[in-house]
Nucleic acid binder design. Structure first.
Lengths: 161, 161
DNA sequence: TTGGGTGCAAAGGCTTTGCATGTGA
DNA sequence: TCACATGCAAAGCCTTTGCACCCAA
């Protein structure tokens, strides 16, 4: 899929999704989705989304950002990420970007705070096993791995030499 | 390890840990640890811990509970769990209970809200692979699996029949 | 004795909500 | 037109902090 196609498709889907649910297509909603769509892999707080959107749409209110974020989240267009730092973060959802519906995992560097995405099917296995042993039917998962990223490990090594 | 041994050992360890770090052993701290220690597998909010502790120690303040929780968490005696419902929850840590230092995973039922623990070494594999492919050194992880538990699945089936 | 600990109340900080106004359909 | 959406400000709510008093060491 070419990069250029992602956004228009996304917009069309988004608009249809809103209309189907009896919701209105507003400039604010489009603008917020665009901000997130233009920053795949970034994990933005509501405040950060607000700041970005204001550049294009200065009169928007923070409450609208919160309300729209919630909406987008319910429509599964964006994914939530909670790093326990007092902010909830959002990124454009995997469903918006590709057909692959798997959530990716997050690698969070304890040194620099950067977040890396990691795709893996290993959980499939685990989910099957859980179903077999406990009768628990897994429908979603959230995996956060904390540690030290390549860059920070290298920097640490440089220091000690 | 016999059940009866857990608490005293835990207390001794805890007291030593405090003293070693130049911290004081207070009734409040002991009482809070006891509440958590008496409820392994439960996931209590600060408020819930507060309510339990007050039964034994009526004059304790909520602020003390928060401060102690933070302390216990820093000493790795309790584990944090965030279910994104506005409360941070705590449970007695694996390190307090056994020598096995592995965090367990949480199965969260979307229907009844119950939380089940699940121990698995599958992540070991994943962590190794991540280290090899990305050079990221994983030191901790948090896995939450959402779905439907055995009981709720059974109840749902009963309804539809 | 004395510095860390506690209780109380106030402040913080992210998020939600009420309400009057605005605007897609 | 009209129900939904928005902006603003106020309220909510969990958690943290300031401060005077208390108590373990």
């Amino acid at each position: 899929m070419k990069m250029g196609e992602i956004m228009p498709n996304n917009h069309k889907q988004f608009k249809d999704l809103l209309r189907t649910n009896g919701l209105k297509v507003t400039n604010q909603r489009i603008a917020i989705l665009e901000v997130l769509n233009n920053r795949p892999g970034e994990h933005l707080t509501a405040e950060e989304i607000y700041d970005h959107v204001r550049m294009e749409y200065p009169d928007i209110g923070l409450a609208t950002v919160y309300r729209t974020i919630q909406l987008l989240s319910e429509l599964n267009l964006i994914d939530k990420l909670n790093l326990d730092d007092g902010y909830v973060r959002y990124e454009i959802g995997v469903k918006s970007q590709e057909d692959n519906c798997h959530h990716h995992h997050h690698l969070i560097c304890l040194d620099c705070g950067n977040i890396y995405a990691f795709q893996d099917d290993l959980l499939e296995n685990l989910e099957e096993r859980i179903n077999e042993t406990l009768g628990f039917e897994v429908v979603d998962h959230e995996v956060k791995l904390y540690g030290h990223c390549k860059v920070c490990i290298a920097q640490e090594e440089m220091k000690s030499n």
